[in-house]
Write a protein that binds this DNA or RNA. Structure first.
Lengths: 166, 166
DNA sequence: CCGCCTGGGTTGACACATCAACCAGACGCG
DNA sequence: CGCGTCTGGTTGATGTGTCAACCCAGGCGG
């Protein structure tokens, strides 16, 4: 064994960087997620929804808008919203246009107001500050390039939900 | 609304870079994962296990070794291994030492041999090549720094499973 | 010998994601 | 009108991850 992934596809330096990246990613993600979960009882998904709602003008959005800005598939969104409603973080309220609007509740607002600073502080400590301004700027650029590259590629041979929406 | 996450915690440039990174991450991950899943019927998790097994000397490892190298918690690993065994990708075989060894099967070996090149090619196309050698090297360094930083932080106040194992 | 801890591993309950199927209204077109 | 089809949204089945509890053997102090 030991030969399978060693084909000329990725040379040693590339392998190493890629694996460092993967590890960093997982480490950071699990750290942030566990922090949110344990200190505030919110999952990453909850957080994402609440951020979007709280950044909207009125604190209320249609589900498909959330679906657009989070890039979740609609069924995931639907399931998660019903769970969040059960926990009192959001409310689905009827409006004239047949489809319910998703509104953040007092409780949801309180939750995100409480946890956002702590979360941001962690992002700063473990990510932003370690990068430093110049390297961070570079990362931002490369990230956009990668998203664009994948988007371009998918225009031709992928199912619709991956394609760029911005 | 719109004020919650705008506290002085992350300034505009930082926000932007962070969100670009998050988006890139999600996009890349889902793209790679869907590719593996649709072309080869393997999940990212399956792939990770198979890579580890195929890179070992004998194609067989104890579960706790897998747990160390993947950094999964043991229950996740146990669940996933039983599922993989049901699908014929691995086998748990008894050995002298009370605990079973996890062995990759012919089928599992065939699966990873088939998909590894295609996967690596995609990593190259969408990640390695977009970065380019210099920026990629930088990313590798920063990644290691971040992992180290989180590791250091967790030595003092985190549950054991996050702490560095290398 | 006993009690107790620790390490490797499994199990069950539950939260979450994904897929395919479905529903209802709107829109277009013959 | 009748028909297909698109969009916004829900539902159920199934696969996956997480947490806490447990099991069992080995070691160790009494």
């Amino acid at each position: 064994m030991g030969f399978v992934t060693k084909e000329p596809w990725l040379d040693d330096d590339e392998q190493k960087a890629w694996r460092s990246y993967l590890l960093m990613n997982r480490t950071l993600e699990t750290h942030l997620e566990r922090h949110l979960q344990r200190e505030f009882g919110l999952s990453k998904s909850d957080f994402e929804i609440l951020v979007n709602l709280s950044e909207s003008e009125s604190g209320r959005m249609r589900a498909f808008e959330l679906s657009r800005s989070t890039q979740w598939e609609k069924s995931r969104l639907s399931h998660h919203l019903t769970r969040m409603e059960k926990r009192g973080l959001i409310r689905k309220e009827a409006c004239e246009s047949r489809y319910p609007e998703i509104a953040i509740t007092e409780q949801g607002l309180a939750a995100i107001k409480e946890c956002a600073p702590a979360h941001a502080a962690r992002v700063r400590e473990f990510f932003v500050d370690v990068f430093g301004p110049e390297r961070l700027a570079v990362l931002g650029e490369v990230s956009d390039e990668i998203v664009a590259t994948i988007g371009k590629h998918c225009d031709t041979d992928c199912p619709p939900e991956v394609r760029g929406t911005s």
